[in-house]
Design a protein around this nucleic acid. Structure first.
Length: 211
DNA sequence: CGGCCGATCCACT
DNA sequence: GTGGATCGGCCGA
């Protein structure tokens, strides 16, 4: 009997379209982004991988969101852009965190991309991360995946995912509901009862090896 | 203008 | 499991 083996073959993909980014349910959007491919191409260097963990931030009614209560500041202004915009901000003074803005303009929904399974441009990402792509912690957190992809808050905040050096593709990787773990979001303890909302989606680690 | 703190990561124990 | 790194955003004075 044939043994299952990792399939890293790159299937022709299509960029996610406006309809995807305009979906009104940001929790659905977060779930739907699992298994999609996130790419960057800076200075001709193509890097990318499979999104394996996301969190939904539900805008003005979500205490864990930067836009809670309709807060509009210089930083959060990006969240009020039309769906399909990159919201990248500095966290803990040293990490750029990458979010996908969804829904209509002025509705500040966003999905934080929390983990990436590296697939394309491994050599380039290895140099950026200064570690082997097979290492634990290579791109399994929101800060480290931005380093691997070369995403930085000063350069890439506000970029349109439909026409820039950052984009997301659907390569028809199917994620079954049984492969998805759902739970509360990370690092949002101060959000009161919103901290308990099941807005975090993950592909189970054991399912990451075979796709 | 001062101070607090964060959607994190890593080294060290 | 714990704490240090490191700095822009934000709020209050």
């Amino acid at each position: 009997m044939k043994k299952a083996s990792p399939n890293k073959q790159i299937v022709p993909g299509s960029k996610l379209d406006k309809r995807f980014y305009l979906q009104e349910d940001v929790v659905e959007a977060a779930r739907n982004l699992l298994g999609k491919y996130l790419f960057t191409r800076f200075d001709g260097q193509l890097t990318g991988g499979i999104i394996t963990e996301t969190e939904a931030y539900a805008g003005v009614i979500d205490k864990a969101s930067h836009a809670f209560g309709g807060r509009r500041t210089n930083r959060t202004e990006t969240m009020y852009s039309e769906g399909g915009t990159a919201y990248v901000y500095l966290c803990y003074g040293m990490y750029s965190l990458f979010n996908v803005v969804t829904n209509k303009k002025d509705i500040p929904h966003a999905v934080l991309i929390r983990a990436l399974h590296p697939v394309v441009g491994l050599d380039i990402m290895e140099k950026r991360r200064k570690m082997k792509p097979a290492s634990k912690n290579f791109s399994g957190g929101p800060g480290t995946l931005s380093i691997a992809l070369g995403i930085h808050f000063t350069s890439h905040n506000g970029l349109p995912l439909a026409g820039s050096e950052i984009w997301i593709e659907d390569r028809k990787l199917k994620i079954a509901p049984s492969q998805i773990t759902i739970g509360p979001r990370v690092g949002v303890e101060s959000a009161g009862k919103d901290a308990l909302l099941p807005y975090r989606f993950r592909i189970r680690p054991e399912d990451l090896l075979y796709h």
